[in-house]
Design a protein around this nucleic acid. Sequence first.
DNA 1: AGCAGAAGTTGGCAGTGTCAACATCCGACA
DNA 2: TGTCGGATGTTGACACTGCCAACTTCTGCT
Lengths: 187, 187
Amino acid sequence: MSTSDKAPYHHGDLRRSLLDAASGILHRDGIGAVSLREVARAAGVSHNAPYRHFPSRDALLAGVAAEGFGRLRARLAAAGDDLAAMGEAYLAFAVAERPCFLLMFGSSLCKADFPDLASAALEALRALDRVASGRAASGGDACESRTIGPATLRAWAIVHGFAHLVADGQLSLEAASRALAADGTAP
Amino acid sequence: MSTSDKAPYHHGDLRRSLLDAASGILHRDGIGAVSLREVARAAGVSHNAPYRHFPSRDALLAGVAAEGFGRLRARLAAAGDDLAAMGEAYLAFAVAERPCFLLMFGSSLCKADFPDLASAALEALRALDRVASGRAASGGDACESRTIGPATLRAWAIVHGFAHLVADGQLSLEAASRALAADGTAP
DNA sequence: AGCAGAAGTTGGCAGTGTCAACATCCGACA
DNA sequence: TGTCGGATGTTGACACTGCCAACTTCTGCT
């Protein structure tokens, strides 16, 4: 409606608009407020248009979550090869994008149902893995979760635990950040 | 309908029945299936009866979650004063009561809205705190989360992180358990 | 030029949470 | 003992949701 003044053929790029609208509502009003119809309304289309791009509400949410993992990955990558910095970045993401973080790691979406989501998640964690298992140095018996090393697992659990506690409001970012730094992601 | 054959006055003890029914549905079909109407149906009352005992669906879920924290507390207490055992117990709870665990630590319930829930949660963690901060031995500058010590925070974050990863199906219980033991809840 | 199919719309159904008004039954008080 | 207040449970309704089916409109390709 801004780039073109002629109301393009159909819409131009719904799907993108839907993802953006959903993301906006998610951050503004929480996951409970993200209904297919509300999203459609926000995108200016009829209540059934989303079904041409997403087979279900959960599929839309999975799309939003997958993009969230993309942003998380970017943040982790920006932290370079410093494990501690990555932990900070993880935490910062959980705070800055709390609703999305909760969506990404919440139970509402079964990752098995959405391969794209699962791979986006794995992709994000791989950054963490690269650094953490490089740091491990010692032996390398691949843990049974074959794509992620044991050192990563430990680092991930700590950071993820703090992130959840912060996201749940049970802990302040400062306290978590301090505890994280003191803990020894760098033992 | 079993203890009395006469269909008692009103119901006897709805609220208890509602909590049980909700808990049953939660564990059987997941949180999405726990609707006020379904719970009422399972308890054999009309769709509006629950409102005499819970002001909203979330309040019912908060009640279920609070009882979950009670059971978690019992498990932690049963682990005695052994921090490692408590970690195992925490993990075991997350697996055995996965749906309830996800409800308890999920984002759907805002603890600020349900004081009973919040206090039940705190009560459960206090057991962890007692042992962990006893273990800390060193200085004791109370962390800003004044009811929980910093040593607890760290232990909690690790255990909680693993529990979430397991509950999300991203990690097997065995792997988490192994990593947890190796990690050093006993540094 | 015209057509197959993608993209979007209208209408409808079953299910939900919540509110309001009504019925029933217990316990307390006269 | 009889009656009445309030707690408990019921019926009915409303707005909202996800999803399905049938219909229209537009597009890119032959």
